[in-house]
Structures are given as C-alpha cells and as structure tokens.
Computed example of a mutant assay.
Amino acid sequence: MKKLIFSAFSLMLLFSCSNDENANGTQDTAATEAHHRGCASHEIHERQLRENPLLAQKMAEIEQITDRAIAEGRIVNGVLEIPVVFNVLYRTASENISLAQLQSQIDVLNEDFQGINADYNSSNPYNSVRGALNVRFVLDNVVRKSTTKTSWGTRDAMKNSRQGGINPTSPTTKLNYWVCTIGGGILGYAQFPGGSSATDGVVVDSRYTGRVGTATAPFNLGRTATHEVGHWMNLRHIWGDATCGSDLVADTPTHNAPNSGVPAVGHRSTCSGQPLEMYMNYMDYTDDRGMYMFSSGQASRMAAIFSTSGPRSSFR
C-alpha cells in the first residue's frame, strides 16, 4: 500500500485526458464513439495551474485541510444533500436526452457513492477496504439550450453563455453537470476543489450519461459521472497520473498505468512489489461494468472537502 505523500501533490494535481484543441475551444476532429475511457480532468487542471499562479498554493492548502479533517474524524454530520443542475446543450434530438435518462444518472450517483450499487458486493481481494459516502444527490433543475456546435472541446466553452454555453447555477451550493458532445474521444472531465466558481462542476458526453436512453456501451452504466464527480470531490486517478504514481490515498495500491476494458482477476502492477491492482475502483479507466467501488480512504478524502473548513463547506 502506498503512503499519502503531501510533497508529491503539486506534481500531479488533477486528472484529465485531452486532445489538442483549436483557439475557440472546439475539437478539430468530429466526435466519435469512444471505445476507451477518456477523462480530461488532469490536463485541464494543469492548464489552470499555468494560467493561475495562485492556484497551486490554494490546492496545497486544501491538502492540509483534507489531512486534518481525516485525522480529526469530524467530516460530515448526517446525510449531505447535493443538488444537481443538468445543463444540456444539444444540436440533435439524440443529444437532448430525456429527463428519465438524467434521473437514471442521479440514481447511479446515489448507488455508487452510498455503496448500495448492485455490484458493490462483488467478491474481490479489496472487499475489506470498500468505502461509501453519506451523501444524497438530488435532481434540482434541468436547463436546456439548442446549439449548432458539433463538439465543445475541453476549454470550458460549454460553461459560458457568451461562448454559446450555459452559465453555472449557484456553483457554490449546487453541482453543475454539463451534458454535451465534447469530442476528441473525451467522455468527460471535472474541476477539482479550489478552482474558479465560474467553471466549477463536471462535463459528461450525453452518450455516457445515465444508464437508459442513448447511453452507449461500454460506458452505459453511468460510471463516467461517478468517476468525474470523484474528481470534483478531490480524488485523483488511481495511478496518480504518472507511472507508479500516488493518488494521495493510503489504502489504494500502486498502479503502473490506467487499466481499460475489464482486467482479468488477479491483474498485478509492474510497480515495486507487484501489488494486486484495484482495477475495480471508480477512479481507474475500466469499462463501466468493471468498476464498482471506492476505497475507505477515498471516501474519507471526499468527505473532508465538505467539512466546516473544507473547500466545499458551502454545501453543508
């Protein structure tokens, strides 16, 4: 098991996987159906760090708050309700996904974060460290807007009405979830705690939102949003976005790289000691049917951001 290393934090902030974008923030290539998970959170966070020299210090302070909140054990009292605003940007009828599909995504988030998903009890070597969070996601509102854009890229244009997008609704008290075609093989991305409220939230392609309607295999069980909301709650990719990197969580094993598809039982890392990888973790890159748990350490880390001194304390 790897040790949480604070000093490594600034070298691996945020998670994402992105393709080159043109100047107006749209992808140069048309959107295509994704066969491998693409998350653009890490690259976007690195861009935000370059654009805002003060963000690194702010993120370091969040790490100190997180460590203290976990150590003190006073995280969240009772069930924390998180209102979700869906901002749907559509060009075609299929992109204008139904209320039923959006509600199915809310259902998935509640199941996955509360640890009541049907596959939660799947037998694996990490059953003893499974974790859950005492939160309840609630569909607060749906904002829809027709657009002529074929793809939005990863420069947050979908979050800005002046660029044809939809401005966030009360981002300090509501989780904004943009539904749109991102392009470039990107399924979704999120903003970590500490970034600008004007761009705070998650973005997920309409084809990978929810588990009914247009939800497309192998990412048709709503787990892309579970992964991205995990980022929004301060979780790193499980491989630490580096070969044998750290995700800053003590009870997850070291991964040499992201996994795809559904790995065979017993898959091991090539890192020191060849630890058995936690490829069923939501913060890996496996297909939706291959991921079904957070660890206890991840749950504590997520809960810490909602503590009275945490970066998302306004949600309490």
Rank of each mutant, 00 (worst) to 15 (best):
residue 285 Y to A: 11
residue 189 Y to T: 03
residue 270 T to I: 12
residue 283 M to Q: 15
residue 84 V to S: 06
residue 49 L to T: 03
residue 23 A to V: 11
residue 1 M to E: 12
residue 37 R to W: 05
residue 151 S to H: 09
residue 95 E to R: 00
residue 78 G to Y: 01
residue 254 T to F: 00
residue 181 T to W: 08
residue 155 R to Q: 13
residue 126 Y to G: 05
residue 309 S to C: 06
residue 134 N to T: 08
residue 4 L to H: 12
residue 265 V to H: 08
residue 140 D to K: 15
residue 163 Q to I: 05
residue 134 N to V: 02
residue 116 I to M: 08
residue 131 G to H: 04
residue 139 L to E: 10
residue 312 R to V: 07
residue 83 P to A: 04
residue 266 G to S: 02
residue 47 R to D: 13
residue 216 T to A: 07
residue 302 M to H: 01
residue 23 A to F: 11
residue 35 H to D: 11
residue 33 E to Q: 13
residue 304 A to N: 01
residue 153 G to T: 00
residue 216 T to C: 04
residue 87 N to K: 15
residue 172 T to P: 00
residue 191 Q to W: 11
residue 268 R to H: 06
residue 20 D to Q: 11
residue 16 S to L: 12
residue 56 A to V: 15
residue 278 M to D: 13
residue 93 A to E: 15
residue 310 G to Q: 04
residue 74 R to I: 11
residue 207 R to C: 09
residue 253 P to D: 02
residue 159 K to W: 13
residue 3 K to I: 15
residue 257 A to Q: 11
residue 45 H to S: 10
residue 15 F to I: 12
residue 231 H to S: 02
residue 109 L to D: 01
residue 193 P to R: 03
residue 36 H to R: 14
residue 191 Q to M: 12
residue 76 V to G: 04
residue 133 L to G: 00
residue 216 T to R: 09
residue 32 T to N: 11
residue 261 G to D: 01
residue 154 T to K: 09
residue 210 G to F: 00
residue 243 T to E: 10
residue 202 V to Y: 04
residue 264 A to Q: 13
residue 80 L to I: 01
residue 177 Y to R: 01
residue 297 G to K: 03
residue 273 G to S: 03
residue 218 P to W: 02
residue 289 R to D: 11
residue 284 D to G: 02
residue 94 S to T: 15
residue 101 Q to G: 05
residue 55 L to I: 02
residue 87 N to V: 05
residue 20 D to F: 11
residue 229 V to K: 06
residue 93 A to T: 10
residue 167 N to K: 05
residue 90 Y to K: 01
residue 11 L to H: 10
residue 307 S to D: 04
residue 248 L to V: 07
residue 81 E to K: 15
residue 199 T to G: 08
residue 156 D to F: 15
residue 79 V to W: 05
residue 48 Q to W: 13
residue 235 L to N: 08
residue 199 T to I: 15
residue 170 S to E: 12
residue 127 N to R: 12
residue 207 R to F: 10
residue 38 G to D: 05
residue 256 N to K: 00
residue 61 E to T: 11
residue 126 Y to C: 07
residue 104 S to G: 06
residue 182 I to G: 05
residue 192 F to H: 10
residue 89 L to I: 04
residue 294 F to D: 03
residue 289 R to V: 14
residue 119 D to N: 13
residue 161 S to Y: 07
residue 144 R to W: 06
residue 47 R to N: 11
residue 80 L to Q: 11
residue 64 Q to L: 12
residue 252 T to M: 04
residue 24 N to I: 14
residue 299 A to K: 00
residue 275 P to L: 00
residue 156 D to W: 14
residue 194 G to N: 02
residue 68 R to E: 14
residue 208 Y to T: 05
residue 156 D to E: 09
residue 53 P to H: 06
residue 282 Y to S: 03
residue 290 G to H: 00
residue 73 G to M: 01
residue 52 N to A: 04
residue 57 Q to C: 03
residue 13 L to Q: 13
residue 274 Q to V: 03
residue 86 F to A: 10
residue 114 Q to V: 03
residue 26 T to E: 14
residue 236 R to Y: 15
residue 236 R to P: 06
residue 52 N to P: 04
residue 195 G to C: 07
residue 149 K to T: 03
residue 109 L to W: 01
residue 197 S to M: 10
residue 86 F to C: 06
